[in-house]
Amino acid sequence: MALDATFFALVGLILFFVLLAYLKVPGMIGKSLDERSNNIRNELAEAKRLREEAQQLLAEYQRKRKEAEAEAAQIVAAAEREAAMMTEEAKQKTEEFVARRTALSEQKIHQAEADAIAAVRSAAVDLAISAAEDVIAKKIDTDKQDALFKDSLHKVQSRLN
């Protein structure tokens, strides 16, 4: 057998494999691959856990959103009821105000009528007194006038006391 380059290449390859086995390289490679697969498995588990957590958060936020929408609807309904009550109250107060103003106006009208009637009566009395004075002055002389005045004055004083 001749010792050619192929033989030395084979011997080099065998020595290389023996050296690799002696230095436990296949174990290190296996261990490295095991660690890598464990890391990948852990990362997948972490990703799964994060995904589940994200789904829980999403479900919680959706529930909170629905609750907020329901609360907003309740607030809007309460505001509408309050607005309707305020409108009704304002309408009632306006009607009461108009009724009070109408009653006050009617009262003022009645008072004005009474004042006008009193003024007309007073004017009629004054006119009648004036006319009576003229008639009496023409028909009665001074002595009788003085006597009538004193008599009327006594009657007025007795009625006032």
Rank of each mutant, 00 (worst) to 15 (best):
A83H: 06
I40Q: 05
L15I: 12
A147K: 15
E133W: 08
Y22E: 03
S152F: 10
L44S: 00
R36Y: 13
E69L: 06
H154T: 15
A116W: 15
L58F: 10
N38W: 06
A2Y: 13
L23T: 09
E46G: 04
Q92E: 05
E88C: 01
E80I: 03
L33K: 02
A119K: 15
K144S: 03
K31N: 06
Q74P: 08
D151L: 11
E53L: 12
Q56D: 08
S130G: 11
A118G: 02
E106G: 00
A45C: 00
Q145P: 01
A112F: 08
D126S: 04
E96K: 02
K64G: 00
K64Q: 09
A72K: 15
L15T: 10
E60F: 07
T94W: 12
K108S: 04
E52Y: 06
E43G: 04
D34P: 09
Q107H: 11
A83L: 13
T142E: 11
E53K: 07
L33N: 01
A90H: 08
G12C: 02
L33R: 04
I109Q: 11
K139E: 01
R121T: 09
A70V: 14
K144G: 02
I109G: 00
F16R: 01
E53Y: 12
N161T: 14
E106D: 11
F17D: 00
V25Q: 05
E71L: 15
A90E: 08
Y22G: 02
F149S: 04
Q157E: 15
A9V: 12
I75E: 00
K155W: 10
G27E: 11
Q157D: 14
K93L: 14
E35W: 13
L104I: 07
G30Y: 06
E35G: 05
A131K: 11
F8T: 14
Q157M: 14
F16Y: 02
I40W: 03
I29N: 00
Q56H: 08
M1S: 09
A123W: 09
A90Y: 10
T87V: 09
R101F: 10
A90P: 05
R101I: 14
A147L: 15
L20S: 01
Q62P: 07
A90Q: 10
L58E: 14
N38R: 14
E106K: 04
K138D: 02
N42P: 00
Q62N: 13
A90T: 08
L15V: 12
E53S: 10
Q145C: 00
K91W: 09
R36A: 10
A59Q: 13
A128I: 13
